[in-house]
Amino acid sequence: MYNRVIEYIKELYGNPDFVGLHEPRFVGNEKKYLNECVDSTFVSSVGKFVDRFEQMVEEYTGCAKAVACVNGTNALHLALVLSDVKAGDEVITQPLTFIATANAISYCGAEPVFLDVDRDTLGLSPKALKEFLSTKTEKKEGHVYNKISGRKIKAVVPMHTFGHAVRMDELKAICDEYGLALIEDAAESLGSFYKGQHTGTIGEIGVLSFNGNKTITTGGGGMLLFRDIETGLHAKHLTTQAKVPHRWEFVHDEIGYNYRMPNLNAALGCAQMENLPMFLEKKKDLAEKYSYFFGAAGIQFLQQPEHSDSNYWLNAVILGNAEERDKFLTQTNNNGVMTRPIWRLMNRLPMFSHCQTDNLENAIWLEERVVNIPSSVRL
């Protein structure tokens, strides 16, 4: 059966010897804008393309303010800093995520708490969050404290896995009830919408990634999305070392970060944004083809969950068990089709093995079964 899967995927991509998991596509003004950037000599953190890229993302997502960063991980870190997450605090997130989510929490000196996901979204479960907060926490002096660790809980960070939106309205209602900041790790979900609203614009702050394997890329890069313009302007100030604007003096008024996206990367991003609608259309067409093929083959293909208009960044199949998963991975990768398992659960990694969790029933089930398959835009 897996031989037919390999043949089909290679046919979709024109029968190459090797099919990558997610390759970038440069079919527009990328070279033109890069040349303009080089000719201008403004190749670092100052230049017209940075501002233009931010404006394009604002217009597309509907956020009030977008702030470009060097990568998605430091965008996550800054989102936590802006949410007043400090050393000794706790942040609730999911164990089924890319490690940047947990690492950014650690950069603040805070501890992650890993709660279960839903099987259909692969993202943080509102039911698990509500159960944890109602049974394992208490409110004191206007703050939420973990009754087991004694630490203050400051924020909740769900992740829109593979571009499939989590149940944001339910999570937001719970966070509002408990006074917790809601930060969306939307690194994988540019072009995804939940109930008509772009992911990353529902919580207080959202974070995008433009790594080389994302739907659009700036080589490396990230973006902060804000519902509040003033907070966005403060974030932009912090990304440039908190330098007070002046023609020649170097005065800094708070602890800042060297997180500003270079103009070169933004030039690439502007060209990529121009083709985003086409990329998304072709990715959805690929997902439809996969859905039909795997359905006929008796293999479960991961569909977008209810209320999610997903970008299908990385397509995935759900196999019967860990043994089937490993056979699928071995046979495809041995025959020129790149596939990969979903991430190792964060609490299984040595640096996070001490962190508090719930039973993680769904996360464990998914870890044993989910495999990503080639998802590059077909041209």
Rank of each mutant, 00 (worst) to 15 (best):
F162C: 10
S125P: 09
N146P: 06
P126D: 05
T137P: 04
K152M: 01
Y145Q: 07
T161F: 15
V144F: 05
T135N: 05
L122V: 15
K140V: 03
L124T: 13
G150Q: 14
V144P: 08
E138F: 05
F132Q: 02
E138W: 00
F132K: 03
G150R: 10
E141M: 05
G163D: 07
S149L: 02
E141N: 14
K140M: 02
K154V: 01
H143M: 07
K154M: 03
Y145I: 05
L129E: 10
F132S: 00
K147G: 01
P158T: 13
A128N: 09
V156R: 01
L129D: 07
L124C: 08
T135L: 01
F132P: 00
H143N: 13
I153N: 06
K154Y: 02
G123N: 06
K139P: 03
K154I: 01
I148V: 14
G150Y: 09
E138S: 12
T161W: 15
L124V: 12
P158I: 11
H160Q: 11
L133F: 10
K136I: 06
A155K: 09
G142T: 04
G142W: 04
V157Y: 03
R151F: 02
L129F: 11
L124Y: 13
P126Q: 06
K147F: 03
L133G: 03
G123S: 15
G163N: 08
V144H: 08
H164A: 06
K136C: 13
H164V: 11
A128K: 07
F132H: 12
S149K: 06
L133Y: 09
H143K: 14
L129Q: 08
H164Y: 14
I153L: 00
N146M: 03
V157P: 03
T161A: 08
P158A: 01
S125G: 06
S149V: 09
L122Y: 15
K140P: 00
A128Q: 12
A155L: 06
H164I: 12
P158R: 09
V144W: 11
M159A: 13
A155I: 09
K136A: 05
S125Y: 10
K147D: 08
K152H: 10
A155G: 02
T161Y: 14
G150H: 13
K127D: 13
E131P: 00
H143A: 10
V144N: 10
K130A: 11
G142C: 09
Y145S: 02
S149M: 06
E138K: 14
N146T: 08
F132R: 05
F162H: 14
S149G: 04
E131Y: 04
S149I: 05
P126R: 04
K140N: 11
L124D: 10
A155Y: 09
Y145T: 00
